[in-house]
């Protein structure tokens, strides 16, 4: 995973509550078996005027001039300013993949859906929770000032804004550690392989019924086929 230390970038406001993961990346793009290339279809149904398909050439599609992502002043934004319950709905990790692939590295919102919030950290995106009032202030500032940028310092847990005081934010210490060092969860967990093995054998003894079926379940399932 990419390391995250400091991100200084242009802020794009998405003024809409309950942005769901279908909004972030519509389902037809989930057919891909790859992890990359989703950026051109980020917010697809709002960004383009026609319906996108995985194999269409996006360069020739009509853009929706009213959608914020298409406005000249927000080109190259890497910080997404959002509203409540951002990322609700499906668990698709394609949502953070699309945001990341487009170039967003930080999200600021008053609240997030759990699974999406979690998925962000796994992909080197930092989702920051800020009080609703602070978010309102930021929306006002971004809209009023073209080229509005913020600097996000993860180590210090601060957001530096132009001509105003810094904003402190919270982040889990373990997640912070992983982001700062670009650590991947599997590697960390496998350091505890012995603990897992020990747990597993205790659990197998205590609750053998969860381990009862044959290795591939096939034998039992053949019986079931008749009933």
């Amino acid at each position: 995973m990419k390391k995250f230390t400091v991100e200084s970038g242009l802020v794009m406001p998405l003024d809409r509550a309950n942005v769901d993961t279908d909004f972030i990346i519509p389902k037809q793009f989930l057919k891909s078996i790859k992890r990359s290339g989703f950026g051109v279809n980020l917010f697809d149904e709002h960004r383009y005027l026609d319906k996108g398909e995985p194999d269409t050439d996006n360069r020739s599609r009509p853009l929706n001039p009213d959608f914020v992502l298409n406005q000249a002043r927000y080109q190259g934004a890497s910080i997404l300013l959002a509203r409540d319950n951002f990322g609700c709905g499906s668990s698709r990790e394609h949502a953070p993949w699309a945001l990341d692939d487009y170039g967003f590295r930080v999200i600021l919102a008053p609240s997030y859906a759990d699974i999406f919030f979690n998925n962000c950290f796994k992909n080197g995106i930092l989702p920051i929770v800020l009080p609703r009032q602070t978010i309102d202030e930021l929306f006002a500032a971004v809209v009023a000032n073209e080229g509005y940028t913020l600097e996000v310092d993860l180590e210090q847990q601060t957001l530096c804004r132009p001509n105003a005081s810094d904003i402190a934010f919270e982040v889990d210490s373990f997640r912070k550690h992983c982001l700062l060092n670009g650590l991947d969860d599997i590697g960390i967990t496998l350091e505890d392989a012995e603990l897992i093995t020990a747990f597993e054998s205790r659990w197998r003894e205590k609750a053998p019924w969860y381990f009862a079926q044959s290795r591939n379940g096939a034998a039992e399932n053949t019986d079931a086929a008749d009933g």
């Binding site: 992909n123 599997i186 496998l190 897992i196």
Partner: peptide, 23 residues
């Protein structure tokens, strides 16, 4: 029972565990 993202799918496949905070 709960939903997870693809990184976690890989994590569960590889470690039989999920990294999580209690709700």
């Amino acid at each position: 029972a709960h939903g997870i993202g693809t990184s976690e799918v890989e994590h569960v496949l590889a470690t039989q565990c999920l990294m999580q905070k209690k709700m």
